[in-house]
């Protein structure tokens, strides 16, 4: 009998312990969610996004009420455990690619990234070609233009001239 009682209390104790542990666990998970993401964490993502309604204003510095809501949305999604990429994707799905500070590298948008370097390379190629044309073949024919060379640079005074000459010396 006693034994039985004891066992019951034991069970009761166990149950209590279980409840305590469980609430403890629950409490811990609750705690893990509790500290809402800081402003800095929100801004780190908002910085990479643009306000979908105002033109050309990054979301982290946009002062409007709408932007405040979007920052809260980021905070909420962070709290739900979404990653930076997922949040950005959410914004793109909802508001279009224009919320990204750079166009996504897909399809036509590749042109955005490819055109400037290509043009720069073309420019460099043109320049080097011109150099080759200027420097190599015409040395013999340069007599016609060499009058210019004897003429010292027009505005410079004597000392500048002397300094310029000095620059040409090898040693």
């Amino acid at each position: 009998m006693n034994n039985y009682k004891l066992r019951i209390t034991n069970y009761g104790f166990l149950a209590l312990a279980f409840v305590l542990v469980a609430t403890g666990l629950f409490y811990q998970t609750a705690l893990a969610q509790e500290p809402t993401p800081t402003d800095d964490e929100v801004n780190a993502i908002a910085k990479q996004l643009y306000c979908p309604v105002c033109e050309n204003t990054p979301l982290d510095v946009c002062p409007t009420e709408a932007c405040r809501q979007w920052r809260e949305l980021i905070r909420q999604q962070l709290a739900e455990g979404r990653t930076e990429e997922e949040i950005k994707q959410y914004f793109v799905n909802n508001y279009g690619a224009r919320v990204l500070s750079e166009p996504p590298r897909t399809g036509f948008n590749w042109l955005v990234y490819v055109v400037p370097p290509v043009l720069l390379l073309i420019g460099a190629a043109v320049l080097f070609n011109a150099f080759r044309a200027w420097t190599k073949p015409k040395v013999a024919a340069s007599a016609s233009g060499s009058g210019r060379e004897a003429e010292p640079s027009s505005v410079d005074d004597e000392y500048i001239k002397r300094m310029e000459e000095e620059l040409k010396k090898r040693k």
Binding site: S101, F108, V112
Partner: peptide
Amino acid sequence: VVCFWGVISPLASELFTGTKITVGPPY
């Protein structure tokens, strides 16, 4: 060229793909 293309390409993108894009500081 970088600047000009950065300003113009959103126009081009809208013309050819119909979507608006932003070309911002990272670019």
